[in-house]
Design a protein around this nucleic acid. Sequence first.
DNA 1: CTGAAAGCGCTTACAG
DNA 2: CTGAAAGCGCTTACAG
Lengths: 347, 347
Amino acid sequence: MNEGFHQRGGAGSRRATGRATLSDVARLAGVSAMTASRALRGERTVDAALAERVLAAAQKLGYVPDPAARALASHRSSHVAVLVPSLTNALFVDLLEAAQRVLRGAGFQTLIGITHYDAAEEEQLVREQLLHRPAGVLLTGLGDAKTTRQLLAAHETPCVCMMEAADDPGVFSVGFSQVDAAAAMTRHLLERGRTRIAFAAAQLDPRTLQRLQGWRQVLGEVGRHDPRLEWLDPAPSSVGLGARMFEQIKSSQPEVDAIFFCNDDLAHGALLAALRMGIEVPRQIAIAGFNDLPESAHMVPPLTTVRTPRAEVGEQAARLLLSLIRKEPPAATALDLGFELVQRAST
Amino acid sequence: MNEGFHQRGGAGSRRATGRATLSDVARLAGVSAMTASRALRGERTVDAALAERVLAAAQKLGYVPDPAARALASHRSSHVAVLVPSLTNALFVDLLEAAQRVLRGAGFQTLIGITHYDAAEEEQLVREQLLHRPAGVLLTGLGDAKTTRQLLAAHETPCVCMMEAADDPGVFSVGFSQVDAAAAMTRHLLERGRTRIAFAAAQLDPRTLQRLQGWRQVLGEVGRHDPRLEWLDPAPSSVGLGARMFEQIKSSQPEVDAIFFCNDDLAHGALLAALRMGIEVPRQIAIAGFNDLPESAHMVPPLTTVRTPRAEVGEQAARLLLSLIRKEPPAATALDLGFELVQRAST
DNA sequence: CTGAAAGCGCTTACAG
DNA sequence: CTGAAAGCGCTTACAG
């Protein structure tokens, strides 16, 4: 019967890897390679008894499918590309970590790409990634990157956008409304009796501009919007920049009684600058941030901010992508995970 | 002559990708696929004129090699796995970003793995990665992970360790001496007239323990080491933990006149706690950190710390790995990039 | 220095 | 529901 007889390649063969292959499994289970392949991928068309034998054989041989062979034959790798603007911002790190945990659990490898907040670089990265035929792409979008979307569509590669609740029905997204979150914070400052509320932002990526919009909207409604209260700097966010912005606003517009920073890093810098300058927060001026980084609760005074569900966004975006990859019906097109206003002593 | 005649697969063929393949290039250049393959990979055995024709053909067709096919045939992918303990610590983010930039430039994709400071998880991740046959591995090692090294050796996968200057000649490493850096900071504190210098650390990974060793060594030499000055907490580092440690040290050992924290996050927490408690730094107590994060220069007072060359470590480690992958003679076995003591107002 | 053959380990597409 | 055949797009190993 030649049972267990296992010859690989014959005389002129090239060096193999030494790992068990699909045909090893098939031979041991007494089925064809095709049936083994189908059983291992969980196709339901395989007879239950056969499938069980295949699984047992695979187990016994310690079989692990070769990703390269699978990718070559199926035109689809087991990679998922995750594109984020930066890893310097803890927000994106949390997003990435959460997504990666889910993807890894499902047998997908995570390839990271850093776009540096540059739409052209995003497009370039997507092109590069598509050469590797990723199973899917997770994106922190840079506006209406139509080209990106077309590229992905042309390669039939599923994609989920993170950190926004998109209104475009052709786009899958997981996030929350940046506009609403900023509006909520602005309302909070009004309720605390502030009348000259500045908005200070850096980087000016699409999500930051959405926050600007929320602030404008609320102040506009109460007739308190004034373009001179907008402090917009395209430079990257940093603690140092936040400190400089605070000094500038304080010296040029002493009547400002609250500053809403577009993120916590800037707000931290402002709080530290206030300490250095002997300006009391919130008595003389209120300071608010956005994101609720771990440091924020420990600042002096503790920072009022918006808690964003970034880990959950990463996780849910990965889950949504997995269902798209598996061609299962997606749970939703746009998943809105909300936000939470965290009031602390700085406002 | 059938020139330009291009038929793919014939009647019963399966859907191809539509991209130009190696044989398209070979046909256009009028050579065999083998010669085309060799020319494109830059093998020097190819006749110059032929090589030029191949390159021109590839250019014209927009040929891009298929990574999966290449990996299947050669048993080696174009991926490099980068394993770090965490991305919550900015140190590792800088490392990763720098390494990725170099690797991407050389045509390698970066796969990240997060070990969560767990040696078992590191080993598990290495096993997983090896199934994908990475071209190489970049590691932020977790001690004498002998198993890890054996695994890599068995798969003939080159590896470079980051953030240490290893003394083991069988290990390639890029970093600096954690012991020396901590010793330098301890000496600095002695020179500033401090006599009761505590060492406060969290996470307790190998590099932290090396810093502990440097501190012990210097204090031992001057007869000022006292085990009660060691504050070691295995919990993850955070600003909050730094604040708590500061409060504890202050209340239980009021005679301590300096605290050397094993990283800047903890030191930031301590500075903030001191502000809250009304304790003057450095008059009443000096505070020092390690790593020089961007925030450190903006703290109140600005933090004295050790600047570590993490971006350069990532970059050089990637370069070293590339030369190992290409079987070029490596520039060095252990590359020591040094460190810099940055004195600011907190000491 | 160059090439025809074989093979890497899977899956697609087609028959039964 | 199952299988024999062909093929994915490259490179290794061997001849010349």
